[in-house]
Every structure is written in structure tokens, then in C-alpha cells.
Write a protein that binds this DNA or RNA. Structure first.
Lengths: 337, 337
DNA sequence: CCTTTTTTGTAAAGCGCTTTACTTTTGTCG
DNA sequence: CGACAAAAGTAAAGCGCTTTACAAAAAAGG
């Protein structure tokens, strides 16, 4: 049988309210406090979070919603969030939505019934409505690595994808590349990265060719197909940027199939600095995000809201960093270098 | 203000017990049932899981404990478990332990206080004691992809690592390899794989060289170092098996550093068939596990125990499959092939 | 040594739901 | 149409904890 506060009270010879008080560090005389502590110890008493939450206390549980925990980048984020959450005494209950709106809605509803203290929503949401509804429900929410919704008053921690796109493009331009392709996704973050790409081109007075931007279905296979297609085109690019590392792996495979040497014949870059980018051959030049600090901030913001410390919302924009590895080099066709 | 069962009862003009009964599909007259349903609908009533769990019902939450959610293989497993759990109406709360015993203990304790309905423990545990304690606590537990503890009466779903090691070694032997190295880890699964490796050697009357088995610290860097070391040895191996795909990436890098062509000069294999093995160059011959079915079974077994359907424990041993890709080929030094 | 404060400790209500035991309604049948 | 069984509905206790309002005890002061 589970040992309850009553058992402790009885064993210590005090009332349950006294026991409750020592648990919550309230004024209790030294003597009874000791008695209670001793009783707890001896009975190996573990208070029920359920019961205490029912009276209005926290559940110390965070709803963590993302598209797919199996995605290495998201898994890495999850780990960082989890670590910070544990540090401050919270647990994560995880739900993968596959970007399906009905799952997003269902899971949020379910977790609310389970009285999670707040939500961390990672990555873009299929449907803004879900978000809007949630923010109207007086429950703490943090958007992490998601599109920034300027119109929504919700705490947000994002990386500046525009800068990321700008940096990596500039890096390639620095190597003399002029025809730089971009394999993108439909997500909002990709669009931002493309904006940065365009900005870099423009600042260096390079022409923007619409046909160099292609949209993938986010699979390695599709990226490979697109890469081959790009490389087969009459005026082929000398560098290919992918909007994430996995896509870049596809590019690598496609290029190899065509007998190209990376980076001698073609520069390729990834995005997100995942395990993949470090372990492939050649290791990828990519863009790293300050994941750890972003996750820590996201958790801390959420907790502050949960505990009612802070009321005003804020949006944090983190800056990404260019990581230069072996997959990029000078444009082999550039005459004057 | 949150809407409770009282609000519904009042609106419907019945008692709360009637409302409770319709929620739990018990005998209730048609008329009142409709009134209640309508009231619930209109009030957008969502029963509190906390309150209902406090009275003895399930929390429909599973404690999911593993070493590191950021590990791609584990993330994949997590996803499968999550999917199945959601299908049957359960959520996962996730805890990464880094193999630290104190974390294992703390998280299990914490989750018990939160009244999770059961635990799924993934991978090997640092300390068997934690496990033993847990199994003595009348809470449902499943070991997934973990060492089988023959002495423990606990539900288990594991892959047959012995077979895995045997299969991949036999595959290499079939290619004429005789000096086959094995880069292992300390975990129990590695040991089983090595047993299979030895068995294969023996069945083919090949000598077992102790110096061909090396233990890594599980990092890519260390695997690379060990690979180089093996390749520098006087009587170098013609094939290297790694006990997981990540280590194999390290081998790939080491081999490349030494100017070897894979698979012409050296065959290398991974284990676990992760994303890594598919996306690297050349794609790795590896061992795949029936992850999906294993995870489904694990969840189902747990639920059965939670709901008290089944009482007897069982241990399920799944069979792995050899996946042949481009990283293995004939032994170049073999005379008669 | 008695009154006033302050410190400790307690009883009881309440959190939102389930469940048991019981009462009221309905329906059935002779 | 009255007696009785079945069906429908309800009151109340209880799950394990927090908290408020209050009582008892201890400390302080005159």
C-alpha cells in the first residue's frame, strides 16, 4: 500500500497539516519538524504529485511538442531542453506531430487535461490557428526555433535564419562562387534563409537566378535528385547550399554519382551543424545554432511564466555561426582569384 | 475559470455522479445522457486527468527512460514507442540518464511520484540494482533493447545481438575475409555481438585473434583512432566491424585518412541501420533491427500489464537482418576467390 | 503570577473526480 | 390498479494533499 501523509502524521504523532507544512518549509517547531522528518524517512514517504497538483500546485511537467523526435536536429534540441528542465525540476512529455494539425490539436488538448504547467512548441506549426487558440488559453507557451509570428504575443526563442543564409552565402561568394544553388524546404525557416541568401548576392552585386532555388520534399533522396538535376543543367552551379544537413548529404551523393570531387569541383554546404555534417566525407561547412543557450533560455522563460515571476512577453533572436569545414573551396572556374 | 463536473451537472440539471457515469459509459438513461452530453459540449468540458487519477484511475502516462534522446538510434526507437503509445492513448515522459546511476534512480522516483502507469527502460542500465528495486515495486516495467537479465522476472523485448554479430561476420567471411577486426563498446549488447562474431569465426574454422577486438569509448573520434591503429598494425585486418554505425563512420574517416578505398581495400560494417549508415559514402553494410515491431510489442506488453489483462511475464527476442550496402566487398588479398 | 503576544499545531473544507449504497422512478404483470 | 422488480438517479465518502481559520501552548512583559 502506498504511504500517505496520514501515515506520516500518525507515525510522527502530529496532524497532517503539520506534515504538509514541513514539506512546504513553513513555520514549524523544531521538535515536530524533526519528528516528521524522521517519520518520512522511516516510511520512505513520497508525496503524490497528483494530489498536490489537484490543490493548485504545479505538476512540474512541460508539454513538449515538435514535428518528429527522430529528426536528429530536433532530438538534439530535445536533449538540451530536457537537461535544463530537469535542472529546474521539471519533466518533459513529448509529442511528435508530423506537422499534422489534428495531432497538434489533440496533443495540446490532452496535455492540458493532464495539467501540464506549460508548453514548449518546437519548429514551425502547420496551422497558426492552433497557436492562436492556445495563447488565448492563459497557459504559458514558448515557441522555440519556430517562425516568429510578429502578430502574436507569445514568448519566442528563435535563431536568425536570415543571418544564417546570409553568412553561408557570403562565405561561398568569398570563395569566388557566383552561381550558387539553394535546395530549400517549404518551412518558414527556409524562406528566411533564402532571404539572407538573396541579400548576400545583392550586396555583392551578383545576379539572382530563380532557377537556382529549388524546393525539396525534405528527403535525402529528393535532395539527391535535385542536385543531379542542377548539375545536369546547362549552366550548372559551382556551389550548392542546402537548407539542412540531411539534404546536403543528398547533394553529396548526387555529386559523387556524377564523379565530382567535393570541394574541388563543387562546394556544398549544409545547415544546422548536426552530427551528420561532422561525420560525413568531406565534413560539411554548415551553420551552427547556439542550441544550448537557446534551449536554456526557452525553458527559463517558460518557468518564469509558470511561476508567475515575469509577465511581459519577449522574443529572443539568437545568432548563428558559420562553421567552415572541408566541403567548400574556391570556385574552380573563377578566372581571377 | 476551469469548467468542472459540477458545472456540467448543473447545466444539465443532474447530479455529478450522473455526469461521471456518462463519461465512463455506465448505465444512464437516454434523456439525461443527452442532456449531459449537450452540456459538456456547450461548456467545452475537459475532465481533469489529475482528479480522476487521484481516485485510482490511470494517468495514461508512461515513463520512458533511456541514456540519451539525442542518440539517433534511440531517437528512432523513441519515435516508434511514442507512436504506438499515442495510438493506445498514452503519453511518454522522457528522461535521459547518460548512464548515470543517480539519474536513473532520481528519475524513476520522480516519475513514480507523478504516478506514471508504468516504465519502459531502453538500453542497458548502469546498475542492475535500480532495476531490481523497481521490479520489486509492483509497477509495470518493460525492458526494451536492453541486456536480458535472465535472473530477473521482467518483461523484455530485445534483439538477438548474438545473431547480429554472427550474421555480419559470416557475410564478411563469405567475401573471403579472414582477419576481421571488431570495434566494440562496453555495453552488454556489444558483448553479445562479439560472441556471435566468435561463433562465426569458429564455424568457419578461422582463428580468433584477441588483438583484433578493441574497445572504444563510443565516440566517433575514438573509433577513428582505433581504426588507424588497427590499420597500422603489422598484420592488419581486411575488414572492420563496428558495434554501431557511428563508430563505423569513424572507421571510414580513419581509412580515408590512410588513403584506403572502401570497399576495395577494406570492408567496413556498422550496426543498427541508422540514418548515418544510409547517408554516408559508401553507404554501410549493417545490421537492421525490427524496431517498429519491437517498440509496438513493448508498448502493448506494458499496457496489458497496466490494465491488468495479463499477469505472466515474457521475454521477446527479435531477429535482426543483414543489410548489404556498398561498404563491403571481397577480400583483396585472398588468393583463391 | 497573570495578561498579552507570538509561536505551534489542528480541524475542516476543498481541489475534481469515482464509486458505493441507497432512494426514487418507471415499467411490468397478475 | 396495486405490488414488485428493474432502471435511473443521487448523496456522500474518499482519493492525498493544501490552506484557512482558529485553538492551544509557549514566550514575553509588567
Amino acid at each position: 500500500m502506498k504511504v500517505t501523509i496520514y501515515d506520516v502524521a500518525e507515525k510522527a504523532g502530529v496532524s497532517i497539516s503539520t506534515v504538509s507544512k514541513v514539506m512546504n518549509n513553513q513555520q514549524v517547531g523544531q521538535k515536530s519538524k524533526q519528528k516528521v522528518l524522521k517519520a518520512m524517512e522511516e516510511l520512505d514517504y513520497k508525496p503524490s504529485v497528483l494530489a498536490s497538483a489537484l490543490t493548485g500546485k504545479r505538476t512540474s511537467t512541460i508539454g513538449f511538442i515538435l514535428s518528429d523526435i527522430a529528426n536528429p536536429f530536433l532530438a538534439e534540441i530535445t536533449r538540451q531542453v530536457e537537461d535544463r528542465a530537469h535542472e529546474v525540476g521539471y519533466n518533459l512529455v513529448i509529442c511528435s506531430t508530423d506537422f499534422k494539425q489534428e495531432k497538434e490539436e489533440r496533443y495540446i488538448e490532452l496535455l492540458r487535461q493532464k495539467s501540464v504547467d506549460g508548453f514548449i512548441l518546437v519548429g514551425d506549426f502547420k496551422n497558426k490557428d492552433v497557436l492562436v487558440k492556445l495563447t488565448h488559453k492563459d497557459v504559458p507557451v514558448i515557441l522555440l526555433a519556430a517562425e516568429s509570428h510578429p502578430s502574436l504575443s507569445v514568448n519566442t526563442v528563435t535563431v536568425d535564419n536570415f543571418i544564417g543564409g546570409y553568412e553561408i552565402t557570403s562565405h561561398l561568394i568569398g570563395f569566388g562562387h557566383e552561381r550558387i544553388a539553394f535546395i530549400a524546404e517549404t518551412a518558414g525557416s527556409s524562406q528566411e534563409r533564402i532571404r539572407g541568401y538573396k541579400q548576400a548576392l545583392q550586396e555583392h552585386s551578383l545576379p539572382y537566378h530563380e532557377d537556382l532555388i529549388v524546393i525539396s520534399d525534405s528527403s535525402l533522396e529528393d535532395a539527391k535528385r535535385l542536385a543531379v538535376q542542377l548539375l545536369d543543367s546547362p549552366n550548372r552551379p559551382t556551389a550548392i547550399i542546402s537548407s539542412n544537413d540531411l539534404l546536403a548529404m543528398g547533394v553529396l551523393m548526387g555529386a559523387r554519382e556524377k564523379g565530382l570531387n567535393i570541394p574541388k569541383d563543387l562546394s556544398v554546404t549544409g545547415f544546422d551543424n548536426t552530427l551528420l555534417s561532422k561525420s560525413c566525407d568531406p565534413p560539411l561547412t554548415t551553420i551552427a545554432h547556439p542550441i544550448k543557450s537557446m534551449c536554456t533560455q526557452a525553458v527559463d522563460m517558460l518557468i518564469e511564466e509558470v511561476e508567475g515571476v515575469k509577465k511581459e512577453k519577449q522574443k529572443i533572436l539568437a545568432l548563428p555561426t558559420l562553421i567552415v569545414r572541408k566541403s567548400t573551396d574556391y570556385n574552380p572556374f573563377k578566372t581571377n582569384r
